[in-house]
């Protein structure tokens, strides 16, 4: 750092506020510590062009995400709606993101079932085309993958399905292809005596890539229904993995 950059001019009158250090590295360190609320960076960007340039730099945004990892606020939640997952914001203004900004519209004449939202992504079962869709509500980016062959033998309207998204890298924003999808489904009504349960583990990197699909025995169904698996939400994915592990 040059000596001149360290010597900031003192305000000529007490009424004039002291200027911030004229140093991009220091400004970045300050911005990094802004609260991770949706309005923080947009508001700071409007202060001056220099700040906007620093704040919109993708490297800074990656650092900001990593810095506030696990401290990000809950922006809201999605509810299953016939027209597609509908976003309900939970924060107060100015951090309240409008529903329309993140809600997803199902394509015309497609039956979408909202499965879950994790890592800021939504997982959708498209019952019309028998596909699963992973969608980033912020960018609108989508990846589709055909559902496992076993699924297709059954009436998709009757199938009860739960799913979860998994990713090894939790700290940074990763491409959709890095995600894996775990699906757990039955082929009929829960009270059906001949009910069978299936689990699949997908790798989105492979198109239609079912890396494992198993037909589970009724013994496992007995255990699973004991755990009321149809009501399981957040633990669904670890259960699928547990089943996968037990099947070898």
């Amino acid at each position: 750092m040059s000596e001149s950059s360290m010597c900031r001019g003192r305000p000529s009158s007490p009424a004039l506020a002291a200027p911030l250090p004229d140093n991009d590295d220091i400004l970045r360190e300050i911005f990094l510590r802004l609260p991770p609320f949706p309005s923080s960076l947009p508001r700071a960007s409007l202060v001056c062009k220099r700040w906007r340039r620093l704040l919109s730099d993708p490297r800074f945004l990656r650092r900001f995400r990593a810095f506030h990892h696990r401290q990000a606020p809950l922006l809201g939640f999605f509810i299953a709606y016939s027209g597609g997952p509908y976003f309900i914001p939970t924060l107060e203004p100015p951090d309240r993101i409008p529903s329309a900004r993140l809600s997803l519209d199902a394509p015309y004449h497609k039956a979408w079932t909202f499965l879950c939202c994790r890592h800021g992504l939504t997982l959708i079962l498209n019952r019309t085309d028998l596909e699963i869709t992973v969608c980033d509500p912020v960018t609108g980016d989508q990846r589709c993958s055909a559902i496992p062959p076993g699924f297709k033998r059954h009436d998709p309207r009757l199938v009860k399905c739960k799913g979860a998204l998994l990713c090894d890298d939790h700290a940074s924003r990763v491409p959709l292809e890095a995600f894996k999808v775990a699906l757990l489904w039955t082929d009929g009504l829960q009270l059906d005596t001949d009910l069978q349960m299936f689990a699949s583990f997908y790798n989105l990197r492979l198109v239609c890539g079912v890396t494992s699909s198993q037909h589970l025995s009724r013994l496992i169904i007995g255990w699973a229904s004991l755990a009321s698996w149809l009501r399981i939400r957040s633990t669904g994915c670890s259960m699928v993995l547990g089943i996968m592990a037990s099947l070898g």
Binding site: P11, L16, A17, A18, P19, L20, R43, A44, L46, V47, C48, K49, R50
Partner: peptide
């Protein structure tokens, strides 16, 4: 703070 208030606190000129 609003962008205006931030500019005031740090004595920053609005160049937009």
């Amino acid at each position: 703070k609003s962008p205006d208030q931030i500019r005031e606190v740090f004595n920053i000129k609005n160049d937009y």
